[in-house]
Amino acid sequence: MISVMVVDDHPMWRDGVARDLTERGFEVRATAPDGEAAVRIARAVQPEVVLMDLNLGATSGVDATRAITGELPATKVLVLSASGEHEDVLEAVKAGASGYLLKSASADELVDAVQRTANGQAVFTPGLAGLVLGEYRRIAAAPEAGTPQLTERETEVLRLVAKGMTARQIADRLVLSHRTVENHVQSTLRKLQLHNRVELARYAIEHGLDGEE
């Protein structure tokens, strides 16, 4: 049974999602109304998947995502947001979230996404693929040593995801296995997260925030 925690500041939504997931056979270990509580509770209950809203009033879902994925390597964060707030979604993914789903997704889509997240797969919407493509191109405009790049194949796959194709359709079009397509998508995310972590560390060292001063 996959263990889940639901983080959302809106009680109606939080309880609704928790009930849906329980009905579908997930173990909802906890819910949290804000980012701070989310980090504290996640530490205690160690869920496999955290469903994270980004709009948490005063606290930021992005910071909570960074703290949880940093501290608990076995816990995956799936962003579930009603927002079209592009930058937020991109930041959350760079901070370690393994996917993004719109709140308007159906219950079936939600269940499928949570299962895939628990299996270590990336959950992409076309919108997220467009954001990730854009981010790679943004950092490619001012490349430094260690700047991650997309391979041609990865770019091809991401573009097709952004145009609304499913992994299976992409596999058919590019004559690849379904698994290979999934791996390409996931690798685009992992490179971006690694780069983000390196950047943060470098920033911390340059600004004396690494605890040695």
Partner: peptide, 13 residues
Amino acid sequence: LTTERVQVSAPST
């Protein structure tokens, strides 16, 4: 242009 049937993907910049 987003609607129930149309999804729009774009960079964050």
